[in-house]
């Protein structure tokens, strides 16, 4: 593939999206590519919708923001936030979505249940290739809830959605993360890349309980790592 890639990372304030974008940007820099990113910082970080834009290219990049319909990949840290960002994704793009929902307060106040599974179904119906990841299980495997961001970046790399290898992202972690957290984050990256907990879409006949989707585990197609 060419070096060009537009990525949207969507989630909820506090999920570590800024670092996730930084790792991809660092990998791009190390590969000698151009990169621009744009972050949501400030008020929205308090549990609001957060979106990072990452643009990687071989030639100079004009805008730091991805235009509607021009993202190649959408990394959803939260399934509903991925749905909210579908307008960025080009038809035929890739969605890597965490299955674990984070219910907005507005849902409970309006007496509504909020199901990640509904959102995942919507993601599966939009003409994109969907890879669903059990982020909870990955965190449990690594033994820390603080590494969800890196585990999901690993899953996206494993699914071939980023155009960077796991090794390239490992180098990015070494360059971006505090010394004492490097080993933990590299473990999370690999856990994500191997996707032992990837969920095949369409397996949500039994709605999992809010807060934990661990009921339907299945191995997805063999992860591919693109050069």
């Amino acid at each position: 593939m060419s070096g060009n890639m537009n990525l949207i990372i969507a989630g909820v304030g506090g999920q570590g999206i800024v670092l996730a974008a930084k790792l991809v940007a660092r990998a791009a820099m190390n590969a000698g590519l151009r990169v621009r990113t744009s972050e949501t910082i400030g008020m929205a970080q308090r549990g609001g919708s957060v979106v990072s834009h990452v643009r990687v290219a071989e030639s100079p990049i004009a805008s730091p923001l991805v235009s509607p319909g021009r993202a190649d990949a959408l990394l959803g840290f939260e399934p509903g936030e991925a749905v909210r960002c579908l307008s960025f994704l080009r038809p035929g793009g890739v969605i890597v979505a965490n299955a674990h929902p984070v219910a907005p307060v507005s849902a409970a106040l309006n007496q509504q249940s909020y199901h990640g599974a509904d959102m995942l179904t919507r993601l599966g119906q939009c003409g994109a290739r969907l890879v669903v990841v059990d982020g909870d299980a990955l965190c449990a495997e690594v033994g820390s809830t603080q590494v969800l961001n890196v585990a999901l970046i690993g899953a996206a790399a494993g699914a071939g959605a980023l155009g960077f290898t796991v090794e390239q992202l490992e180098d990015a972690i070494r360059a971006s993360v505090r010394e004492k957290f490097i080993a933990l984050n590299i473990r999370a990256l690999h856990a994500g890349a191997c996707q032992p907990h990837a969920l095949a879409p369409g397996l949500f006949a039994n709605r999992p309980q809010a807060g934990s989707i661990r009921t339907t585990l299945a191995r997805s197609t063999q992860p591919q790592v693109s050069p």
Partner: peptide, 14 residues
Amino acid sequence: DPVLIEPPPRPPVL
């Protein structure tokens, strides 16, 4: 799937 609606709004919260 007609069940599906847009995700509920998610403004910042305490």
